[in-house]
Every structure is written in C-alpha cells, then in structure tokens.
Design a protein around this nucleic acid. Sequence first.
DNA 1: AAATAGTATACAAAGTTGGTAGACTTTGTG
DNA 2: CACAAAGTCTACCAACTTTGTATACTATTT
Lengths: 158, 158
Amino acid sequence: MISRKTKYALKALMYLARESDRGPVLISEISEEERIPKKFLESILVTLKNQGFLHSRKGKGGGYSLGKPPKEIIVGEVVRLLDGPFAPVPCVSETAYMKCTECNDENACGIRLVMKDVRDAIAGVLLSTTLADMIERVKETGKRNSGISHPKRGATNV
Amino acid sequence: MISRKTKYALKALMYLARESDRGPVLISEISEEERIPKKFLESILVTLKNQGFLHSRKGKGGGYSLGKPPKEIIVGEVVRLLDGPFAPVPCVSETAYMKCTECNDENACGIRLVMKDVRDAIAGVLLSTTLADMIERVKETGKRNSGISHPKRGATNV
DNA sequence: AAATAGTATACAAAGTTGGTAGACTTTGTG
DNA sequence: CACAAAGTCTACCAACTTTGTATACTATTT
C-alpha cells in the first residue's frame, strides 16, 4: 500500500504540471482543488522541493511550480522519496539495503530471492513512468471514456 | 514492505516442507528453529490452517504438517492472506476492490493507472511462485555458493 | 486420568501515519 | 518603511497497525 502522503504528492505534481503556464501556484489552491489538508500538503511540498522536484517562491506572488519538466519527473523516485524503498524486504533494496533482523543466513533465504524479483518488477514499472506519462495516459483514457474494467466478483488475482 | 507475520509464515511453511517426512511438527520446534516467538507463531499457523495451507493434529504426537504439496502452495496466496492485497491502492485490487476515499474521479486517475501496472507486476511474480519453487531456488543458489550480489553504493535503483 | 498439544480471547507496548497549531522568515507593493 | 502575502520550521497529538504476551481453555493420545 502506498501512503496518502505519496498519493497527495503525485496529485500535487500533476496539478502543477497542468497549471504550469500560470506561474507559481498557491499551496492553498492545490489544497482546495485536490482536497488535501493544507498543513499536511505543506510538509509534502517541502520534501518534494528539497529533492528538486519542485521550486518555490516566497512572499507575495509566490507559490510552487515544477522544478523540472514532467518528462524528467520519475514516478518511482517520488514514491521512493515519500514511501521509502520499493523492496518488500530491506535485504533486497538497492537504495536502502539492510540485513533483515530475523534472518540468519541471507544467502540461503528463499524469501529474499522471491522478494528480489518483486522489487525488480515494481522498480521496472515505477522507474519507467514519468509524470508526463501519467498525464498522457489520463488524457487517453479520458478520450476513450471508459477506464479500467472493474473486477468481477470471485476473480482469482488481487 | 511485507510484515514479519508473512515472513514468519513463509519460514514456517518452508520448515514444514523440509521436515515433511517426519509427520507432525511441534509449534515449539518451529518456533525455536526459526526463532519466531511461539505465541505469535501460533496465531499465524491457525490462520494458515484455516485457509487449508496447513493441517494440524491435537494431543500427544500431534503438531502441524502441510495441508497440500509444496507445488500447490502459492507464495502470493500466503502473502495475500497475511499481508492483504498486492495492490498499492485499493481501487486496483482484484480481491479487495475499494474506491479510494480521496479520489473524486476514478477513471481520470493517473495514479490508478500506474498502480494497476504495479499490482499486475507484483501479482505476476508472487502468483507464479510456489513453495516448492522457493525451496528449489534456495538449493540451487546454495550449490553455486554465491547468492545474490550485493548492491554497490550509489546504485540507481532501489 | 494425565500429559501433550493446539485454540481462543484479551490485552499491551512500540512504531507509523495522518494531521494540527503556532510562531517565524522572506518578499513584493504602496 | 510598513504591511500583507506566502512559504518554512518546530513541535505536538490522535488513531491505527504491528508485534507481541498472558491466561484460560479444549481436544486427543496413551
């Protein structure tokens, strides 16, 4: 499960990408339009700014704007920043490797091997998707006016 | 991140698969060998039993054994049972679909589209791996006596 | 009947997440 | 310069989840 924090971050980024013509956008505008608690959003935006995803201007006429073009904002990097590593288990993380406390022999750990595949699968998707891609895909499905089909009851997969 | 609960469950299942010749195995034996708090393990085993992954016998000479052959125990189903759905976002779950509370228009949600891909990627790995596969892979890497290579510092992926 | 072994229920400590409050700093404008 | 607008920093807190523990019970074999 991704946290609300990450969802809010992605929503804010998409909003800013869409409104990028207008110059700096107020926190309170994003907060209201995307229905994100203002103070909570503030802390998220600061985090995004510190990593260069956003740029801000203080004072009157200030606000937030994208720190780089939507094509250069990798969804996976945003997720990682706010939610932490993709790896379901710290011992297969590329950016935050840690020995599992409850693991005796790492090399003989089957869980590790499987979770490495999972981490790679997740990374494969998230690191190949940009903010621009996300926005593009929304536009496309909007045209087709259909969206993803809903699951039938009793489906076999999560 | 997968929970300890799930890790413990998988460890217990692997242990039982390896010791399957000997008939029922005591909770306390699994607990000691795999260093899992006994009472905590108990509750996990009951959950696994209720889903048919395990079989138990009470009384003297009793204990736990696998409820079906290792080839029929899907890792993903165990994970799902203990950790919940794979989907990073409830609105793309196949087994536990729910509308996201903070989402206005589901069909125009870019996050949803990306997360659907992520969930499919995770499901792809976890539902195609069985307990038997895990055990087999451990044996193989054991032979090669190497295991997964550790990440270099400054690697680009998680 | 006695010992063995799993089952059920309730509770608790610690950590994480989501959110709030308030004071502070920076900047543009009259 | 003064004031208002806007982001920033620090601290806090309530709710929830995770990871356990304690206790009493039920079922089975010998």
